[in-house]
Simulated assay, not measured.
Amino acid sequence: MRYIRPFLFLILLSFISCGKKDNHLYTFYYWKTKLALDKTEKDALQKASDPVLYTRFFDVDKVDGKFQPVGVITKDKSFETDKQIAPTVFITNRTFLYIKKDDIPFLAEKVHQLIQKKTDEYHLKTNNEIQIDCDWTAGTRDDYFTFLKELKKISGKEITCTLRLHQVKDKAQTGIPPVAKVFLMCYSTSSPLENSDKNSILDVNILKSYLSKLEEYPIKKIEVALPIYSWGIVTNHLGKHRLINALSQKDLDNLNFRKISENEIEIQKDGFYFGNFLNKGFKIKIEEISDQQLQDVIHFLDKKIPQYNIIYYQLDSKFVSNQNFNLN
């Protein structure tokens, strides 16, 4: 009998260990053209448990039939961090529309060269990863996937890429990218420029419907990008919309605003608001993300993905100052 009790104890300990989820390591995307960090951002980054900062280096677009880098980074002396930098490049889908086969390795070479140039120029401590962000479609998938292979061959680095919700749901049409790891973008669930009562940054029910069969996705190494940003959607007299970034509900406290609901106001007096001239009668709707929404997404994904890290979009003092990142 004395051998049975330790045996039962080991089984119980194993059961408890298997049932306990590890906390998710987390870090940030840095998505500004000028690399600079204020104290709030440095503090948030220092506390991040993942050793990597995913840093946008530039965009790539096609202008008059030619590939063009857009918004190439500059660096301020305040940008100091012990984190490893993972160069991230956004490429428009139209860059791959009707692209010539010979232009694909040319584009991969130019992307690699510009990453190397900025890495050397600013003495950035990069890791062995390059991440490509592209909202590819069924019509561009083959050329985009060829580009990813060429970039891996030219750079000798691990190539990762972002994965949008529709690319999971419609994987038969959009295809599976030739990478070992993808970054699932759990935001932009609808367009902010549509007339809708849904939160366009993140509607958890829409996300769950798109990811209902995520466990069947063939790439098993999936990291998760979650939103912490906010904005205001301005609607004019004609029903046209535009965005003002980084607004929150506290910005709606103004004597010239009439509250319509908790997150929407109507302007009562023409004037400059948030750097924009807005007329009387214009409406502003705030969209931001609550801890509860993020927790709902994390709990849902915990059932779909065995283990993953979280990358919050984005590192900005406007978004990280009051954020709780221990949501596991």
Rank of each mutant, 00 (worst) to 15 (best):
L202I: 04
F96W: 03
S188W: 10
I206T: 15
K198C: 06
V70E: 12
S261N: 14
I4N: 07
D50S: 14
D82M: 09
Y308N: 07
Q292H: 11
F28W: 05
Q113W: 08
I228R: 04
D38L: 04
A138R: 11
Q167T: 05
K285G: 09
R5I: 15
Q113V: 07
S321Q: 14
V70K: 13
P69D: 05
N128L: 10
Q293D: 13
Y312E: 01
P306V: 04
K171I: 15
A172G: 05
H24G: 03
E158F: 06
Q323P: 04
R94L: 08
K153D: 12
K259A: 15
F7M: 11
L53H: 03
S191N: 08
F67H: 02
L8N: 06
Q268V: 06
L184E: 07
I176L: 09
I91V: 15
S261W: 09
I206A: 08
L25V: 06
Y217L: 08
H24S: 09
S188H: 13
L315I: 04
V224M: 01
Y54Q: 12
S14T: 11
N263K: 12
D76R: 01
D291A: 03
F274T: 03
L148N: 09
S188M: 10
L238W: 08
I265Y: 01
A246N: 13
P6F: 01
